[in-house]
Design a protein around this nucleic acid. Structure first.
Lengths: 155, 155
DNA sequence: TCTTTACCTCAACCTAACTTGAGGTATTAA
DNA sequence: TTAATACCTCAAGTTAGGTTGAGGTAAAGA
């Protein structure tokens, strides 16, 4: 067991996130901490890698909840090693591939549309492009803010 | 001027969105309607294409606000024609290309990481991957829900 | 020792993109 | 004509991913 002696402020600075973000991640079960005598958080050094992984996952468009689930598969007792992180990144690599493929299909459709100027529901291939990823429900978000409620048509 | 005789319910059904979504889009200035004697919305047929464009843009990861701005460049008086929609899709095609390129860079970095199992802040290329797109501020979202506040580190 | 800086909790706020519901009016079909 | 839909507005709720602030305690350095 490694010594848990990183304070929340140090971790925040080192990882480039705010202290409040670390609190938030802890509430969400993405990272853990122990407390010192004065009830202050103390982290084991592997928290640094965990936060990196969280940020990397977010860049790939993976939701915090999915990241949490991925982190959950890491060994709880021993400190995760290279193999563990490899498994994780291999998994995400696949997701990233799918995401890229989806956007490429969209791009191809769009290229078709540029010719006809359509982009219209009835005719446009882009509208009917393979929606597998898009409709997969609780998928991730990319590069920015919310998209809100499901677009299911209960009508 | 085309006849504005689409009711909100018809448009919703045809476009696969909820009535409340159309109300919402109107409040946000993405679509417009006129009212009949009984204060009910009536739409010109080009609203169908506008909604398609909105949905296509969202699939590409473009925010509603950016979509609004794009739609704003369409002719207000005459009904937009093929040329107008072409200009729009050409513009988005570029954005989509950038987005794909960003994810590909990320994928390449990740591939490197799989070898070393790192994914860690200090060493991992993915962590320091070109963040141009990601940090461009109010960019769009992809395929799903919110990611929330900016990740600027004011410390 | 004293003061500054860091930390703690909890509640409330923020944005995007919608959805839900209440209370009431229009339109449509039988 | 009447009942069933469809529509209207406005306020409030939802989710993700955080941020902000108040009120109070701990630790660190001069």
């Amino acid at each position: 067991m490694e010594t848990a002696n990183w304070t929340v402020g140090k971790v925040a600075k080192r990882c480039g996130v705010k202290v409040s973000t670390l609190h938030f991640y802890e509430r969400r079960g993405l990272i853990r901490s122990t407390r010192n005598a004065g009830n202050q958080r103390r982290y084991k050094p592997d928290v640094l890698r965990r936060v990196s992984v969280i940020k990397a996952g977010q860049k790939m468009g993976i939701s915090l909840e999915s990241i949490r689930q991925a982190l959950e598969t890491l060994p709880g007792q021993r400190t995760p090693g290279a193999k563990d992180w490899q498994r994780l990144s291999t998994h995400w690599r696949v997701e990233l591939d799918e995401r890229i493929a989806y956007l490429e299909r969209l791009r191809d459709s769009l290229t078709g549309c540029i010719g006809c100027g359509c982009l219209s529901m009835e005719n446009c291939p882009i509208y009917n492009a393979d929606d597998k990823l898009a409709s997969e429900g609780r998928g991730p978000v990319l590069l920015d803010r919310a998209r809100g409620g499901s677009s299911t048509v209960t009508q």
